[in-house]
């Protein structure tokens, strides 16, 4: 790998922008008061006209926000302890998820496996395609134009800003989720999985590992 250009004219400290409590909605400095007012008025009108039941919008929002990381983490933990399940997950993510009672709402789920030779990174350059039905809503940096444009062009530099340095011998494989597929990274397992409970293993999995901007410290 060539030397990193440390004089990047517009470095973005992606990692520092991330906290566990980050907001899912990107607001401007003034907040979203105007949009909130418009939404409230619109909702009131739709309810008054009988097009929307009272509370229906909140229920829909809850439905969108309910699936969280734990579903994706469960898929990964099962794949770590069950090689046959791992094979099925890599062959058809949606079918394998159904085995665990998970309904993947997206057209197809492509699971890409990190190995000692390949590190996978997911991005959607066009918008913010993300396997929401098993990971919940994407982090705000995933939607940012900076991440979307740079992840395909200088992935190792972006990963470095996330605190992740990929060795030269490991190929970085970027997946631009531009159309109908949705992607999940299958991270490398911890050094020892024998005798460990699946639920404990699932607890080791972070959202960023499933996007490819982090790895499990082994």
């Amino acid at each position: 790998m060539a030397e990193r250009d440390t004089t990047d004219p517009c470095p973005l400290p992606l990692r520092t922008a991330y906290t566990a409590q980050e907001s899912l909605v990107v607001e401007d400095d003034a907040g979203n008061a105007e949009a909130a007012r418009i939404t409230t008025i619109l909702e009131g009108m739709l309810v008054a006209k009988g097009l929307l039941a009272k509370g229906e919008a909140d229920q829909e929002i809850e439905k969108i926000e309910t699936p969280g990381l734990h579903l994706g983490a469960r898929l990964v933990a099962r794949a770590w302890v069950d090689p046959d399940f791992r094979n099925r997950l890599l062959a058809d993510g949606k079918l394998a998820a159904a085995e665990l009672g998970m309904k993947v709402g997206e057209a197809q789920l492509v699971v890409v496996e990190n190995t000692p030779d390949v590190h996978n990174l997911i991005v959607c350059t066009l918008c913010s395609c993300y396997p929401r039905s098993i990971l919940g809503q994407p982090p705000s940096w995933y939607i940012s134009k900076t991440y979307r444009s740079r992840a395909v062009r200088e992935p190792r530099t972006v990963l470095h800003e996330f605190g992740l340095d990929i060795p030269e011998a490991v190929r970085v494989r970027v997946h631009d989720s531009n159309a109908d597929m949705r992607y999940l990274v299958l991270p490398m397992p911890p050094a020892e999985t024998v005798g460990r409970h699946e639920i404990d293993l699932a607890g080791l999995v972070s959202r960023d590992m499933l996007i490819g901007t982090a790895v499990l410290q082994r």
Binding site: A2, R153, E154, R171, V172
Partner: peptide
Amino acid sequence: QTDLWTDYSEYPDDTLVTEIY
């Protein structure tokens, strides 16, 4: 990646996968 970006300078084996109709 080195085919997509003439100035790609990170590592020559790196690749990118995307969906094409």
